[in-house]
Simulated assay, not measured.
Amino acid sequence: MRITIVSRIFAPEPGAASLRLKSLVEALAHAGAQVDVMTTAPPASKSGQTDMPARVSRWPVLRDSSGYVRGYLQYMSFDIPAFFRVLFHKRIDVIVVEPPPTTGLFVRLGSALRRIPYVYFAADIWSDAAGSTGAASWIVSGVRFIEKLALSGATHVIAVSDAVADRVKTLAPTAHVTVAGHGVDTSLFTPEGAAPAEPADIVYVGTASEWHGASVALDVVIALLTENIELTAAFIGQGSEWLSLKQRAEKSSVSARIRVLPTVVPEEAAMWLRSARVSIATLKPGLGYDFAVPTKIYSSLASGTPVAYAGPDPVRSMVVDNQLGVATDYDAALLTQQLRALLEGSGELSASSMRAWTQDNVSATAVAGRAATAIMQSARHDA
């Protein structure tokens, strides 16, 4: 079986999608499939070998000022060539397409012309995310229309959670959906391994977009570092709010003990997480995106590091009920209080139990296996 994955992001470029697709490629190859990947040429700063059982075809694209493929022109610089690459690629049994929805739409057009089934990997709902940023209503409506087309044309949709699956069914009632779950590479994110030269006590590792509301994380860090002159913190990542976070951190009275660094490769992210005493994750409620799960939480727990989370359920209950750290409403004062208590008695949380929870519930291998089964069944049923 020949399976082609179409994604604007892929290893070695860091990101949750890269890690997810790496595991998926391995699962598909293990099941006997021949895998091709159509993706972008990575930025020069992220170049490197991709060691996995797939043939990877790369295309140069436009990137924003931070080096990320983000924005409508940037998406089109990948999507339009991807349409022709799908159209003229040799034998394909099934296509797997990653968001954004514009890529899904162009893949739908190409697959229809070639009469090839495609599977849409719904890691999140982009129209909901657009609404959460305060985008104009016509933009949100446009994204939602395109997303409906991408979802409804798919032979199968793979969702990362029950909440995402529910939203998929709302947008595309006839969609055949499989919930594969979120996954983390537990062979990469481990409690044992190398550490950075100067580790930090508190870390935020990952994206900081509008719907993350990471300003609360910075508020908490500044408050705790002001109280305790021995604490240090590091923010490592990228996103639409990253510049404002960096500027606020640099202007704070504790700027000498807060490092704000750009995105690092997953291996380096693992180093920061395993060496920290706690990691912070936030999710701003009320933006129509409350069902999202910041996957940085799973990477931290796999590394044996507890999480301090501020945001809505279901994540808040998940952290508290499974003793994975502390969790509060989206409120800086509440999270400061809880995180202070955690740091004062951090020995009460077991790194081994957090690690075991991730292996039992969110292992990337298990998630990729479920997704690979759905993908291969889609090709067989369509044959």
Results as ranks from 00 to 15, higher is better:
D124P: 02
A129T: 07
H182K: 12
E98K: 01
D166L: 15
P60K: 12
T174F: 11
A172Y: 08
G142E: 12
Q359D: 05
A366V: 13
S363Y: 04
A223F: 05
D64M: 12
S137M: 02
H381R: 14
Y330V: 00
E250S: 15
P99I: 00
S240T: 14
H89T: 00
N322Q: 09
W59A: 12
E241V: 10
G286L: 03
S187A: 13
T4W: 04
Q337R: 15
T358G: 01
M52L: 15
G347M: 06
S111W: 00
A308D: 11
V320R: 00
A223E: 14
T282D: 10
A154L: 07
T4A: 10
S187N: 15
V179H: 13
G67I: 12
V179E: 13
M354G: 08
S346V: 06
P266V: 10
S132D: 02
G15R: 02
A129R: 12
V205M: 12
Q238K: 05
R274W: 03
I9V: 12
Q338H: 07
L224V: 12
R85C: 00
M1F: 03
M318P: 03
G325I: 02
P266N: 10
K169N: 09
I139M: 09
I80F: 10
S255Y: 11
Q359K: 13
T232Y: 08
M376Q: 15
L149H: 05
A310E: 04
E13C: 01
S132F: 02
S299C: 03
Y330K: 00
V260G: 04
S47V: 14
H212N: 14
G15S: 03
V220E: 06
V265L: 15
V220T: 14
A44Q: 14
P285W: 04
V140D: 04
S161M: 13
L21D: 04
R2L: 01
L62K: 02
S300P: 15
A136M: 05
L334V: 01
F145T: 07
F121Q: 05
